[in-house]
Design a binder for these strands. Sequence first.
RNA 1: GCCGGUGUAGCUCAGCGGUAGAGCAACCGCCUCGUAAGCGGUAGGUCGUCGGUUCAAAUCCGACCGCCGGCUCCA
Length: 649
Amino acid sequence: MKIRLPDGKELELRPNATVADVAEALGGRWRKEAVGAIVDGELYDLLKPLPEGAEVRLITKKDPEFQHLFRHTLAHVLAQAVKEFFTQKGYPEDAVKLGIGPVIENGFYYDIDPPEPISDADLPAIEAIMRDILRRNLPLRRTVLSREEALARYQDKDPYKTELIGDIPEGEPISFYSQEGFTDLCRGPHVPRTGMIPPHFKLTHVAGAYFKGDHTRPQLQRVYGVAFRTKEELKEHLWRIEAAKQRDHRKLGRELELFLVDPMVGKGLVLWLPKGNVLREELITLMRSEQKARGYQLVTTPHIGSLELYKTSGHYPYYAESQFPPMTLEDDEAYLLKPMNCPHHIRIFAAKKRSYRELPLRLAEFGTVYRFEQSGELHGLTRVRGFTQDDAHIFCTPDQVKDEFKSVIELTLYVLKILGLSDFRARIGTREPGSDKYVGDDALWNRAERQIQEAAEEMGLDFTLEAGDAAFYGPKLDFVVRDALGREWQLGTIQVDYNLPQRFDLTYTGPDGTPHRPVMIHRAPFGSIERFVGIIIEHFAGEFPLWLAPIQTVIIPITDRHTEYAQKVNAELSAAGLRSEVDGRQERMQAKIRDWEKQKVPIILVVGDREMEEGTVAVRDRRKKTRYVMAVDELIQSLKERIAERRLE
RNA sequence: GCCGGUGUAGCUCAGCGGUAGAGCAACCGCCUCGUAAGCGGUAGGUCGUCGGUUCAAAUCCGACCGCCGGCUCCA
């Protein structure tokens, strides 16, 4: 057979040759250093036969792809180690059953069904066995079996693997990778010997995971590990995790007294403390003024609505699982805590005859909604059971959809930019083909999906398409960010909806004097204010820019005799609209500075004899990391500017 | 909801079969101080809850509740 090399040269090899044969043929340092290859764009190991005519680029330990190879093999080593761990405990050879063991960002995991639960405390012992397997430097072999042979291998031994074999499409090779003492169904690729795996890995935690991610299937135990090429990368990674924990919004929320989740009030229900509420209010003020500038009108609607309303909208019983149960009155009248604002806004639209001249009609509300999220899913501010959306519903003509959609993208990008949030991605959720969980007819769906994509493209937005991520009534564009620990959260969302107007039989009178069906756009640039504040806390690590800071300035008198002057300065700052305080505690100046630095207050003003005489303040600017003396009115002027422009400094 | 872990003072944590401790915070007092912790004192906990084992339980066991890490879900 023949293959092609990156320099265009062809190489003649024996039939069914592997990357190892290529390395051998090339000789020299390749023979020693090749660990795999990129074959027609796909990562191959040394063991898998090459396709005829393939383009082969060899890789060594220095290439980033190497990481993928050894992480994958580490997953196998982990599974082997767990098997040995339980054999040592006296369990039979096949007591441990295996799911899948893939490579993930920074490492790998393996889903395991053990004879008794694995706990975090077992990880060091399992890790020790893994290191021993690396030390033994076991060679890996790749074998291909027929479907019958493969099934026979796991017959009555491992139901998961049996099922996985069944999932392999007809015609694809059913390959196994083995090393001494362990064989696994696997498509590869792997390193050729366990000794080639860098020993810089660590098992991090164990968690439950449903087989194939399906909660109706058995739950396996997923053991997670991280692995890197060098000791430094591993250390760096572990350090980053520790550093990220320092900016966890739940920790900062407690330390900076921003918010509280009190079990006595109820889980997933946020109590906003005075300081945290400042963040909320500032963000709402920002959004309110931007929306006003873009032609939105504010409305206010109640926290509950009649069950009939949600039956008409289709939210009930479709989402009954994730709603607080209806409140039923004696005469069978029932109400639902509102899980969404749209039905209320729809009734405002429907309240009178609407003309095409009124459209687009943009009804906005910072509306609080309640959803019965699963208890295990609750998480600080980012997953709660009651939250406020910066919600609005745009009622428009079909022709206006794209422009309105683009305008919302513009608004969203604008506020994200003000906050310096640049690390987000956009994804367009479309229907999952063949699923029956959507309402509305195909033509409308196709049209909406096309309009969203065009709007995003025309706004120059990079996005990914994700089938199955649509809302039940229409496709959507979501903005997604990562928190300090790398978890992804959905923030803003824009959704086109042809269906609710139909369900509520909404119409407007067109220029032709006849009724027409409006289109709705659901949109929330922040999404949930709670979640957004949570992300903002982590984004700034609690060191908020001046305009957001709950306390903007603190004045520290050096001794008692400076307190009066401090209060005078404070009065001037407060009159100028700054959130300011005097620290009049019986403490040394140093101690006060330390306390307020820990509270991450942006501006600390120290006043003593000199300042009192000159009518100045000594400024300690946290974000600029500088100190300077300034006249009070001058300072006020400069701070007001920073705030008005919402500068990030 | 499921699997695993965890729960001691407001916070961070020690104690892990013999009946509860530290630092910080709070409160009182002294100190009047120039850019990240001055000193002394006081008060504060039915050791998440309920049940079991034991002469004796914060400590061992069970259930429940909360929290943490995942999984599932997310209009």
